[in-house]
Design a protein around this nucleic acid. Sequence first.
DNA 1: GATCTATGTAAGTGAGTGCTTACACTCTCG
DNA 2: CGAGAGTGTAAGCACTCACTTACATAGATC
Lengths: 120, 120
Amino acid sequence: MDAALRAVADPTRRAILRLVQTEELPAGEIADHFPEISRPAVSQHLRVLTDAGLVDVRPEGNRRLYRWRRDGLRDAAAFLDEMWSEQLERLKVAAEREEWPDRTRAVQAIRRRAEKETPS
Amino acid sequence: MDAALRAVADPTRRAILRLVQTEELPAGEIADHFPEISRPAVSQHLRVLTDAGLVDVRPEGNRRLYRWRRDGLRDAAAFLDEMWSEQLERLKVAAEREEWPDRTRAVQAIRRRAEKETPS
DNA sequence: GATCTATGTAAGTGAGTGCTTACACTCTCG
DNA sequence: CGAGAGTGTAAGCACTCACTTACATAGATC
């Protein structure tokens, strides 16, 4: 889980993750989305993501196709979820007037930011 | 969000977070839970957590009391949540595109997975 | 087989991290 | 006031990270 969280703490790697989440992409095409850094840098990011179990690789001819691996973030997601739910349980028991964390709104905020961070 | 994810990627800091999640604790008492590392090291971890907005500090006389900050992990949790839900959306679209005999049941299966995997 | 294309690896570098020991500060209490 | 407890900060060190440029390797193409 440490590796997954560390991998996902980098904004470039998060952007890569979002790219390969919906479709399988070759390394070069991924690198094209990041003109500000070199292609080897992207390759190294892909290695970090692969080692952390966040993406899968599949050689196809000349190229290597990357794609999101769903289970990769499970433990990390579970940790955060546990923090939330335990806290929520505590809050619920403690006081009903306590404001409920608005997760839906947070998700939408992230979506807006995602559009800005990964211009495809 | 970067800071929060980076902070939470360290196992010692995750342990600290769990300690101060349910009760407010002074720095020294927190440090007592980690005999393998020095007290200043713990103090620096607390600084990282504070800077990342994951804990709140409150001076009380001689001591400084730390406690979990609810909003600190919101963006990070939302990011992971987004990954999950978008993936579910993708599966749903894929399921609908394939012309299965019983389309409704397929969608419901996806919905059940959604409930299990992203408990709100 | 020679060469092009796609990609990973090596080596080096500046910045950051996590730890240590030593020190400084601040509040409390005799 | 002065001593002690509780805590943060400074300095130094080994290690890791994110990047660069230069090079190596494997499959496709002529």
